[in-house]
Simulated assay, not measured.
Amino acid sequence: MSILEHIALLARYNADMNQKLYDAAAQLSQDELTADRSAFFGSLCGTMNHMLAGDTIWLKRFAAHPAAFPALQAMHDIPLPSGSLRHTFGDSVAALRPYREQLDAMILALAPQLQPGHVDGTLEYRSTQGVLFHKHFGSVLLHFFNHQTHHRGQASTLLTQAGIDIGVTDLLAWVPGA
């Protein structure tokens, strides 16, 4: 598999897993969703908000790429999260789900727009503290998906602790057969 095929696979995995996460979280009461569970972002809802904030920040950076990916044009109209990585987009699954689905649709649409020259090139961006970076774009894209997987793992643990089984989470279930 080429890196572009891996990115397309990760985009599908990401969208499917986010749907599973939101479906599982919807089984919780509002109090259970927002209960402080001593996670890094407090509650399951806090973790879900963090994932949206991180994705928004990265997608805005990707939207500034010189290739001007059509899939990310809407990101130009979406403001950066205030409060950065702890931004709150909502406090319920119903409030968060439309934005999650919007971002996942953009990610799915971005994957086929990527070309080898894009992923082999450099992405210039600023950190949330304003530090300028120049990084290999393909590696940054892999980090983007890894970050989501990391926090979905935390969310899956919080759901398990609340008595909800999210089901299979292994990427292997999405890898096509030979």
Rank of each mutant, 00 (worst) to 15 (best):
N14I: 03
A25P: 04
R86H: 15
D104K: 09
H147M: 05
G163K: 13
Y125A: 03
L159R: 07
F133D: 09
L114W: 01
T169I: 12
D120W: 04
I166Q: 06
Y13K: 01
A64Q: 03
K20I: 03
D77T: 11
Q129I: 08
S29L: 09
Q30W: 09
S29Q: 13
T149Y: 07
L28W: 10
D36T: 01
G153L: 11
L159D: 01
Y99G: 02
Q102K: 12
Q148S: 07
D36Y: 06
V119A: 08
G54F: 01
Q73K: 15
Q102F: 12
A24R: 02
G167F: 12
M1P: 08
V168L: 15
H151M: 09
H76R: 08
F89W: 14
G163C: 08
F145D: 03
N49F: 02
H76I: 03
P98C: 13
A68H: 09
G177S: 14
A178W: 14
L103W: 06
D165F: 13
R61V: 06
P70K: 09
L72W: 01
S127N: 15
F145M: 12
I166W: 08
D55Y: 00
G117D: 14
L21W: 01
L28Q: 04
F62T: 00
A71W: 07
T169D: 12
D120C: 11
F89P: 02
T169F: 11
R97S: 03
L159Y: 02
A109Q: 00
L132W: 04
A35M: 10
T88K: 15
H87E: 05
A68D: 06
A15N: 07
V93N: 05
L142W: 06
L9M: 09
S92P: 01
V119T: 08
M106R: 10
S139E: 14
V140W: 01
L80D: 13
D77Q: 15
L103N: 05
H136V: 06
L132R: 07
